[in-house]
C-alpha cells in the first residue's frame, strides 16, 4: 500500500476489509485434518479494501509457469509491486519445520536482482525482506493440490485514495459483526466456534488418544501459527479499533478494543491448556477444551453485539 502513495497501517487494512472471522470447514481437509481459519483469505482482504480505498486490484492466474513468471518480470520492470499466492512448502527461506503443503500463503515481490536473477520478496511472517531463486519461486507459485495458487498475482490498477473514515470505519465494523453473528451458515463466526466445541466433545479421547491429540494440535496450529496466528488476529483487530477510535474520535471503541484484547488473551490460554494436554502435562480431556471454547463463543458473541451497536450510533 505504502508503495502506491497511501500510508495505511496493517491493523487499519485488516479492519477496513472486515477480515476478522472464524471459520471451521471440516469438509476441507489439510493432510486429513479439518481447515479452521481465524481470518478471511488474503484475496478477500485485498478485495475488501477496494471499496473503502476506491481503487481496483487486478488479479491474474496462469496455466503455464513460464507465462506466470514472464508476467511477473514485466510488472516488476514496470515498477509495480505484486502480491503472490504461494505454497509454503517450496520456499527455501521458511524454517524447515514450518514447511507444510499450505498453498494459501501470500507475499509481496518488489524487485529482481539483475545480476543473479533472484527475486526480492517481503514475507509477512519474516522480519527481513528475503531473496528467492527463480526456479523455487516458480515451483511455489505453481504448486498443485488443495487451494492451488495457479500462479495468482495481484496489483492495483490505479492508486488507492484516502478513504472517507467517518463512513468507512463504521461500515467495516458492521460487516465484521454481521459475519461473526449472522452469517447463515453453521460453521462461520460464533456458530463455528460452537461447532468446533462439539467436534471436540465427539473425539475418541479414550479409544484413540493419539488421533485426538493430533486433531487438537492441528487446530491449535491453525490458531497460533498461520500468519500472526488466530489469537493474534484478535489483537490486530483490537489495534484497528484503537486506531479507529482516535481517527474518528470515538473513545468508546478504545474500551471495546480492551475487551477484545482480553478475548485474545483467553484464546492464548485455550491454546496453552490444549498444548499441556498434548504434552501429557495435564490429563487429556477434550470436553474441558470444549467448555473453554463455548465460553469463548459466548464472549465473542457479547463482544460483537456491543461492537455492532457502537457502529450503529453515529
Amino acid at each position: 500500500m505504502r508503495h502506491y502513495g497511501l500510508p495505511l497501517s496493517e491493523p487499519m487494512a485488516f479492519g477496513l476489509s472486515s477480515a476478522l472471522t472464524f471459520a471451521f470447514l471440516p469438509f476441507i481437509k489439510i493432510s486429513g485434518q479439518p481447515l479452521a481459519s481465524y481470518r478471511m483469505p488474503p484475496r478477500a482482504i485485498i478485495r475488501g479494501l477496494q471499496k473503502p480505498l476506491r481503487f481496483s486490484m487486478r488479479t491474474e492466474t496462469f496455466r503455464r509457469p513460464e507465462a506466470g513468471m514472464a508476467r511477473l518480470d514485466e510488472l516488476l520492470d514496470a515498477g509495480h509491486v505484486a502480491g503472490l499466492q504461494v505454497s509454503v512448502f517450496w520456499l527455501p527461506f521458511i524454517p524447515p519445520d514450518f514447511r507444510f503443503h499450505f498453498n494459501a500463503h501470500n507475499l509481496l515481490a518488489y524487485g529482481r536482482d539483475a545480476a543473479s536473477g533472484e527475486y526480492l520478496l517481503s514475507d509477512p511472517v519474516l522480519e527481513e525482506p528475503v531473496r528467492c531463486a527463480s526456479a523455487d519461486l516458480a515451483r511455489a507459485r505453481f504448486a498443485r493440490g488443495l487451494l492451488a495458487p495457479k500462479g495468482l498475482l495481484y496489483y492495483p490498477a490505479n492508486a488507492p485514495q484516502e478513504p472517507a473514515w467517518e463512513q468507512a470505519i463504521p461500515a467495516a465494523i458492521k460487516k465484521t459483526a454481521w459475519i461473526m453473528l449472522r452469517t447463515p451458515l453453521p460453521f462461520i463466526g460464533v456458530k463455528g466456534i460452537n461447532r468446533v466445541a462439539r467436534a471436540f466433545e465427539r473425539l475418541p479421547a479414550a479409544a484413540d488418544p493419539q488421533a485426538t491429540k493430533l486433531y487438537i494440535g492441528h487446530l491449535i496450529r491453525m490458531q497460533e501459527e498461520i500468519g500472526t496466528g488466530g489469537g493474534g488476529f484478535r489483537f490486530m483487530y483490537a489495534a484497528f479499533l484503537e486506531e479507529a477510535a482516535s481517527r474518528i474520535n470515538r473513545p468508546d471503541l478504545t474500551e471495546l478494543a480492551a475487551e477484545l484484547v482480553d478475548i485474545g488473551d483467553l484464546w492464548r490460554e485455550f491454546a496453552l491448556a490444549a498444548a499441556r494436554m498434548i504434552r501429557d502435562r495435564d490429563p487429556l480431556d477434550p470436553g474441558r477444551l470444549a467448555t473453554l471454547l463455548r465460553t469463548q463463543a459466548a464472549r465473542e458473541k457479547a463482544f460483537f453485539i456491543a461492537l455492532d451497536k457502537a457502529a450503529r450510533i453515529s
Partner: peptide
C-alpha cells in the same frame, strides 16, 4: 517463540 506453538508444530512434524 512460544512453547505452545512449538509443541503443536513439532507434533505435526513428528507425525
Amino acid at each position: 517463540g512460544w512453547e505452545v506453538e512449538e509443541t503443536v508444530t513439532l507434533q505435526a512434524v513428528r507425525a
